[in-house]
């Protein structure tokens, strides 16, 4: 297990890492994409929903505004990619996905302390939640 983690790291040289579907990937900015970066202060009504990708910055992991922003973006019909940028905790990853985030950008140092296998492990927590059950049952 440990061996696999280390291998995952050896591919990565960038300062930050994208967690996508439970895997660590290099953070690359795709210049062809039409990207908007916002933070917790953003007013949802003023956001251009035609973007390909919206990056929501989390100043601190405990600043939960981004969760509601992502959810509202989805409710308003945003179809592009939503990325959280900030050192979210592994345990917040399933919450983020449930709010509509696709990926999380974390620092390399953070990734080293909270390695890939931990992010994969928590992915199962997106199933079996009360809210889905309440609304779908």
């Amino acid at each position: 297990m440990l061996h696999k983690q280390q291998k995952a790291f050896s591919n990565i040289t960038a300062k930050s890492i994208i967690v996508r579907n439970g895997f660590f990937e290099k953070a690359e900015i795709d210049n062809s994409k039409n990207i908007l970066e916002i933070d917790g202060n953003a007013k949802i009504s003023q956001i251009d929903l035609s973007k390909d990708m919206i990056i929501i910055e989390f100043e601190k992991f405990a600043d939960g505004r981004g969760f509601s922003l992502a959810k509202l973006l989805r409710q308003n019909g945003f179809k592009g990619i939503i990325r959280a940028k900030g050192n979210l905790l592994v345990d917040q990853y399933p919450l983020a996905i449930r709010c509509g985030f696709d990926e999380i950008e974390i620092s390399l140092a953070h990734a080293q302390r909270q390695p890939q296998n931990q992010w994969q492990e928590v992915l199962t927590r997106t199933n079996n939640n009360y809210l889905d059950r309440l609304m779908l049952a």
Partner: peptide, 17 residues
């Protein structure tokens, strides 16, 4: 009880102010 189910692990509201 409905509120308990609704609020338990609600993804938006675990990190309120």
């Amino acid at each position: 009880e409905l509120l308990r189910q609704y609020s338990t692990d609600h993804p938006q509201f675990q990190f309120l102010p």
